[in-house]
Every structure is written in structure tokens, then in C-alpha cells.
Design a protein around this nucleic acid. Structure first.
Length: 589
RNA sequence: CGGGGUGUGGCGCAGCUUGGUAGCGCACCUGCUUUGGGAGCAGGGGGUCGUCGGUUCGAAUCCGGCCACCCCGACCA
């Protein structure tokens, strides 16, 4: 049975809702696929839910195909498992917490590592039971500080999350690869363009990790790629380490008066005027910029940290935060400076920094700051800087940190060429959790020698509702939506344009024949609606093909339009079903 | 959590400065006309003006509190 516009629960909007956010989100609202129910909350209407269910089904089929088994947990969970892993605290305000009538704490789960781990622990005790992969398609909740971008960052969203359980690293590797393959097939089937990038494992802990991103300018994630095939989330980009330099002939470090030079810009200008270099002017890259932040560790303790980067680069707050997780990073405010009088704002230098120093403040530097590099940097006194401070001679950092901003043109870490920055929507994330959760929750099995071993886990997520939004953003144009065939609510939007029994009867007959041939049809059978309105709605709703039965029927001809390309062709009415069936079949090779 | 803005039928907005019992477009209902690019005419239904309090003979309009929502930033699948 075709879907009928005359009875479909939908109302298209001519105007853009005031709270529409992105082009695709606007189109979904205008086309009547979704309704906003509150901040970060959306209702799926029949058309939208149809698309959503198709995405879900593709995901389900490919998960089943790698032998993963579907389960379903409650979204509402007691806090205890999350306390055991520390995430009841770590998740902070982003966790929806609630209390029952007996004052017990609960949460609306943002993700389900803990309960999956405990489930396997409850039922399995032997290496013979492993490996096993379990998944669910479940509504997740995050109390986002600022929900935005329509469906892309809501407070409620649907995620497919799966978890693999293996006895050893080789097993985990195989489970990870199986999921990776399934994800590639899922996104290919959905017809959504994607790139796979190296990622940070983030708040989940763990090691190997990759993200699947749908490239689009409206994406919230920044990633890089090189001509040679390197691709990474900007948070995960590593900096090639230059070789150490000899410094035997370097002059001794010397402190100079540099009044009123609290910024790199003022410092470089002053140095060029009063202490010019013999070979070339001073440049920001010659300076070592030291940024102090305040860390708050999960146990609540606070620690100042200084990060040194070449002065021509800013610290990227996201990269810094990703490196320091699970600690929280905050700017060092005036009160903090007052409490640490050694730290002179604008004139920080490494001489008094480092775990072994008088202040014992941890000092981490950019990987470009290698032994033998020579710097112009703060002298820890108002209006003073030190010149020719040599790394490895005059100061020794406590370690390196990837916190400096990444720029277009920076070299890829694997030597595959200059990096290009781009934006994308994260639609999938796979990573090897390792034993973090198994250890925290004591998931162990007996191995073949009768010895207890801790299970190693992988965690794999796909944002199901987010994919619908990502595809809408990827496919939207001035006229409206345009779905890839595999997830479109119907393959053909059949417009009965004009009045007359013959037009209506023919439209009805073609709809029935197409459905009988396995082609889903959305039939615009609304009486007394002008052709113009039907055309606009057809374009807005975005079925891949629009079939118009109208005035040319008198000549035995109907019109087939391709929504994506806009191409139109006249087809004999008797041939059009065969034409559309052939179009829907896979191309012969 | 900082900064800015907005709350008026289902949707988009005007009215507020200068208080006098609510209006326009879209959508919806009825009738006639129209029918290949969001039709025309006529008639009609639908709003405690976010909320609580204050000022006033009288408040959508002025004053105060609260709430909600949007944008930019900080933070995150």
C-alpha cells in the first residue's frame, strides 16, 4: 500500500520555524519529519520515524552479521555501577540524576559500559564463553550545558552501543576489526559520505580508537587529513618531534629588562628594537609561551600546571583538555595567581617550574621544544625576559603534551604530507577499552590453566538519531531534503498533477503497480490541491524520484524527475514502472 | 557558567515608546471560481498576550520577581 498524502500525518510549513538551527534541521522541521518538544528534545513524526527506523534496521542487520547479539537495558539505572567506576562523579553535570520515592539515586544512562560489563560478569566465568559481543539500540540521556544543532546534540538521542569481551589482546583486536568492518558497511549502505580518523579514547579510557565522521562545514568536530592518507581528529593529532640540536656554542642565558611586554606581540616588538638578532628579526616562534591552568582531579584535588608552547601558537583548549582527562581544566584566575606569587602573569618562565624545582609545579611542553632548542621566554619577574634559554641545559620539562593548536599545512606525523583541516559530524566511534571497566567491576574468567584473567573489552557506538540528522545536513538543498534511496521514506513520490479522473486513476494504478514491483510509493492524491503546491512539497520531502502524472498523460507520457540532480525525462506511461524498477536495481557490472 | 536577545491563536510576525479590552500573513473550516510551480473572491473558527505580583478607574503595553526559549562563548556522542 502506498503512503498517501491525503491521510499522512504531516503538515509542511511554508516558513522557517524561528528556532530552526541548521539547514538540514530546518528542512526536517518544515517537511514535517520532526517536531521540537523542548530544548534538545524532538518528536519523530511518521515520515521521520520511517527514516529513523530504516537507519536502525541497517545498523541492526550489520551488527547481527558479525555475530553481535542484541539486548536491551533500562535507560533508567541505579547509581551503584557508575559509582564503582567513578563515573557517577566524573560525568558531572552532564549526567541526568534523579531520585525515587525512597530517596535512592538513579541516573538516565548516558552510555552503558558498566551494566554490560556486569551482565557478562553475572553470566560468564570461563574463557570458553568468550569472545562475545553484545549490543543494544537505546535512548541515551545527557544533560548538555547547551543542546544545539537540532538533532545533532540533543539531551535525548538514540545510540547503538556494543561491547566486545575477549580473554586476550589478539581477541580484542579481532573484535575491533570486525566492528570496524561492520561500520564501514553500515555507512556505505546508508549512502552517507564518511571518513575514518584516529581519535582520542576520551572519557572512556582505553587505547586504540577511531572515529567515523561525516564531513560537512556544520560539523562540530575538527579533523585533519593529509594527501598521503593520514586522518585524525584534531584532538588526536601528534606532532612530529624534531631532532635534538647541539648547544655547545650557545651563549649563556641572560636576563634583560623588557618593560611592558606581557604578550608575545609586545615582547617580539621590544626584542627587535632593543636586542636585535644578528641573523634575522625575532619572530613569535622564537619565544616560549608558558600558559598556566588549574587542574581539578576526579578526587577533587587541585593542581596548577604550566604548558609551554612556541609563541606563534595558541594552546588549543580542546586538545589540552583531551590530554589531561579525566582532570578538569580551568583558566588560572586572579585568585589563583594571588595564591601562587611565584607565577608572574605575562612573564612566566621554566626556570622555576618542574616537579624537581622550588615550586614543584608540573611543566609540560610542546613536542617541538626539544633538547638544544633556544628560547626567549619569561624571567618570572614583571618586565623581565630571559634570552638564549636552552632546553636541556637551562631547564628540563617534566614531559611533553599535545596542546598547541594544529594548523593547516602542519606536517602529518607519519610524513604523508601537509595537513588540511576540515569539519565533520561524529557518526560512529570505536575503541579498545582494554581492562579499565573489567578491572573496576572485577570481570574475570578462568583461562585454560584454571587461572583468573581479567577480560579485555571494546566499545563501539553509532549515533542512530544523529545519522538521520547528518544525512539531512549532507543532502539538503535550497528546495528541501533529498534522501539516499536506502533510507528514504519511499523511493518514488508520485504526484497526481491536475484534475480529471484519468489522471487520478492512472496515478492510483501506477502506485499499485510500483508497490507490487517492490517500489515504495508516496502518493500525493490530495484532491483540490494545486500542482504547484504538490511539486513544492515533493521537493521539500525529498524522495529520490518524483513521478508526475499530469497534463501530458493525454499523449501517453508521464514525467520522471531525479530529486538530487533535477533531471527530468518523459517516459511512456506503459513503460514507467519498468523504468523505475530498473533504476532501483543495482547497476549491472 | 559568562555575554546578548526573545516570549502575543498551530507557524511566522506587528502592536508596547505615548495604557482604553488584540491585529496581519501562512495554515485550518464553508461556498463559488481556479488547476504544471506554494491560486482568487466571500464568509468563518481559534489567543487567560510565558508566569506571579505591583502601579492604575483601566495593563499585551509601565515597574519588580520568577520561568522558558534562542544566539555567541566556555563545556560535550
Amino acid at each position: 500500500m502506498p503512503l498517501r498524502m491525503s491521510t499522512l500525518f504531516v503538515r509542511t510549513l511554508r516558513e522557517e520555524p524561528a528556532d530552526a538551527e541548521l539547514p538540514g534541521h530546518t528542512a526536517l522541521l518544515r517537511a514535517g519529519y520532526i517536531r521540537r518538544a523542548g530544548t534538545g528534545l524532538h518528536t519523530w513524526l511518521p515520515l521521520g520515524h520511517r527514516v529513523y527506523r530504516r537507519v536502525e534496521q541497517v545498523v541492526r542487520e550489520e551488527m547481527d552479521a558479525i555475530g553481535a547479539q542484541e539486548v536491551h537495558f533500562p535507560a533508567l539505572l541505579p547509581k551503584e555501577p557508575y559509582q564503582a567506576t567513578g563515573r557517577w562523579e566524573e560525568y558531572g553535570d552532564n549526567l541526568f540524576r534523579l531520585r525515587d520515592r525512597r530517596d535512592n539515586d538513579y541516573l538516565l544512562a548516558p552510555t552503558h559500559e558498566e551494566v554490560f560489563t556486569l551482565l557478562v560478569k553475572d553470566l560468564y566465568a570461563s574463557y570458553k564463553d568468550l569472545p562475545v559481543s553484545l549490543y543494544q539500540i537505546q535512548t541515551k540521556y545527557r544533560d548538555e550545558a547547551r543542546p544545539r544543532a537540532g538533532l545533532l546534540r540533543g539531551r535525548e538521542f538514540v545510540m547503538k552501543d556494543s561491547y566486545s569481551f575477549d580473554v586476550d589482546d589478539a581477541g580484542l583486536e579481532a573484535s575491533y576489526d570486525a566492528h570496524r568492518g561492520a561500520y564501514v558497511r553500515i555507512f556505505e549502505r546508508l549512502g552517507i559520505p564518511f571518513v575514518i580518523v584516529e581519535a582520542m579514547s576520551g572519557a572512556m579510557g582505553g587505547s586504540r580508537s577511531e572515529e567515523f565522521l561525516a564531513p560537512t562545514p556544520v560539523g562540530e568536530d575538527t579533523f585533519v587529513r593529509s594527501p598521503g592518507g593520514y586522518a585524525a581528529n584534531v584532538e588526536a593529532v601528534t606532532t612530529p618531534v624534531p631532532p635534538a640540536l647541539p648547544f655547545d656554542d650557545a651563549p649563556a642565558a641572560h636576563v634583560e629588562d623588557t618593560p611592558a611586554t606581557p604578550t608575545i606581540e609586545t615582547l617580539v616588538a621590544f626584542a627587535n628594537e632593543h636586542h636585535p638578532r644578528p641573523d634575522r628579526p625575532w619572530r613569535p616562534a622564537d619565544t616560549l609561551k608558558n600558559v598556566v591552568v588549574m587542574l581539578t582531579h576526579p578526587d577533587g584535588s587541585r593542581e596548577p600546571l604550566v604548558v609551554g608552547v612556541p609563541g606563534d601558537r595558541d594552546v588549543d583548549a580542546k586538545r589540552l583538555a583531551a590530554q589531561l582527562e579525566p582532570a578538569e581544566v580551568a583558566v588560572f584566575d586572579d585568585d589563583d595567581f594571588a595564591a601562587h606569587p611565584h607565577l608572574v602573569k605575562g612573564y612566566l618562565g621554566p626556570q622555576i617550574l618542574g616537579a624537581a624545582s622550588e615550586t614543584s609545579i608540573r611543566y609540560l611542553v610542546d613536542p617541538r621544544v626539544v633538547t638544544g632548542t633556544r628560547w626567549l621566554t619569561g624571567a618570572n619577574a614583571e618586565g623581565h625576559h630571559v634570552f638564549d634559554l636552552v632546553c636541556g641545559r637551562d631547564f628540563t620539562p617534566d614531559g611533553v603534551i599535545e596542546a598547541a593548536e594544529v594548523r593547516d599545512g602542519d606536517p602529518a606525523p607519519d610524513g604523508s604530507g601537509p595537513l588540511e583541516l576540515a569539519r565533520g559530524i561524529e557518526i560512529g566511534h570505536i575503541f579498545q577499552l582494554g581492562r579499565k571497566y573489567a578491572e573496576a567491576l572485577d570481570l574475570k574468567v578462568l583461562d585454560e590453566h584454571g587461572k583468573l584473567v581479567t577480560v579485555t573489552m571494546g566499545s563501539y557506538g553509532i549515533g542512530v538519531s544523529r545519522i538521520v540528522a547528518a544525512i539531512a545536513e549532507a543532502c539538503v538543498d535550497d528546495l528541501g531534503l533529498c534522501w539516499p534511496a536506502p533510507i528514504a521514506p519511499a523511493r518514488v513520490h508520485l504526484v497526481a498533477a491536475g484534475k480529471g479522473e484519468e489522471i487520478n486513476d492512472t496515478a492510483e494504478r501506477l502506485a499499485a503497480e510500483l508497490e507490487a514491483a517492490g517500489i515504495e510509493v508516496l502518493l500525493d492524491d490530495r484532491p483540490r490541491v494545486s500542482p504547484g503546491v504538490k511539486f513544492k512539497d515533493a521537493e521539500l520531502l525529498g524522495m529520490p524520484k518524483i513521478l508526475v502524472v499530469g497534463k501530458r498523460l493525454a499523449d501517453g507520457v508521464v514525467e520522471v524527475r531525479d530529486r538530487a540532480s533535477g533531471e527530468r525525462e518523459d517516459v511512456a506511461v506503459d513503460a514507467v514502472v519498468g523504468h523505475l524498477v530498473a533504476d532501483a536495481s543495482p547497476a549491472p557490472r
